[in-house]
C-alpha cells in the first residue's frame, strides 16, 4: 500500500512534469519516468510480462523515437521547440480539469462508497492466480484464443512500417 502510494505520487508528478515542462526533452524525460513507474506498478500487480514489455516498448523504442525526432528538430530548427505561453491556457486547464471531477464521481466514486445499494463491484478483492501475468500464461492465451487479434495487430504494424516509410520518403 505504501509502495503504491509512493509510486502513484511519483507517476502523477512525472505526468504533470510532461505538460509543465517548457522544453520537449524535459517532457520526454518526465514521460520516461512515468512509464518506468507504471512498469513497477505492473510488476507489483504480478504482471511480469507486461511490465517488462512496458519498459521494452514504451521506454526503449517509442520514447527513443520521440527523442530522435526532438533531437532532429533541435538540430535543424531549435527555435521551433520553444513553447509560447498564452493566457487562454489556464482556462483550458480548468475546463479540461473539470473532466477529472466528472469522471471521478462517475467511475471511481462508487468504489469508495462503503455499501452501495446495488453495486456488485464494491469490496472486490483480487482473486487472480499468482502466475496470471507470466510469459507462459500470456503466451498461451495470446496464441490460442486471441490469435486472430494478434495477426491483425501484426498486419497493422506492417502497414504502419510501410506507411511511415512512404510518409518519410516522399519529397516535395
Amino acid at each position: 500500500m505504501i509502495l503504491f502510494i509512493v509510486l502513484a505520487v511519483v507517476s502523477i508528478a512525472a505526468a504533470v512534469g510532461v505538460i509543465a515542462a517548457q522544453n520537449p526533452i524535459r517532457s520526454a524525460m518526465a514521460l520516461v519516468l512515468n512509464f518506468l513507474v507504471l512498469a513497477v506498478i505492473y510488476f507489483s500487480l504480478n504482471l511480469h510480462l507486461l511490465g517488462i514489455s512496458q519498459v521494452l516498448i514504451y521506454t526503449g523504442l517509442i520514447m527513443m523515437l520521440f527523442l530522435f525526432c526532438i533531437l532532429l528538430l533541435n538540430l535543424s530548427a531549435p527555435q521551433m521547440l520553444t513553447e509560447p505561453s498564452y493566457l487562454k491556457r489556464w482556462a483550458a486547464v480548468l475546463v479540461t480539469g473539470s473532466l477529472l471531477v466528472v469522471l471521478f464521481s462517475q467511475i471511481v466514486g462508487p468504489w469508495l462508497v462503503p455499501v452501495p445499494p446495488n453495486n456488485t463491484f464494491a469490496g472486490v478483492i483480487s482473486n487472480a492466480p499468482d502466475d496470471f501475468g507470466t510469459a507462459k500464461a500470456v503466451g498461451n492465451a495470446l496464441f490460442n484464443h486471441w490469435v486472430y487479434g494478434f495477426e491483425i495487430a501484426s498486419l497493422l504494424l506492417l502497414v504502419g512500417i510501410v506507411g511511415s516509410i512512404l510518409v518519410a520518403k516522399r519529397r516535395g
Partner: peptide, 25 residues
C-alpha cells in the same frame, strides 16, 4: 530468477542509451 530473464536484459540495455542522448543534448 524471474520468468522474463532475457527480456529484462533487452529492456535494461535499451535504457542505457538515455544517458548518451541526454548527455549529448
Amino acid at each position: 530468477d524471474v520468468d522474463i530473464g532475457i527480456l529484462w536484459v533487452l529492456a535494461i540495455s535499451s535504457l542505457g542509451v538515455y544517458g548518451i542522448v541526454l548527455g549529448g543534448w
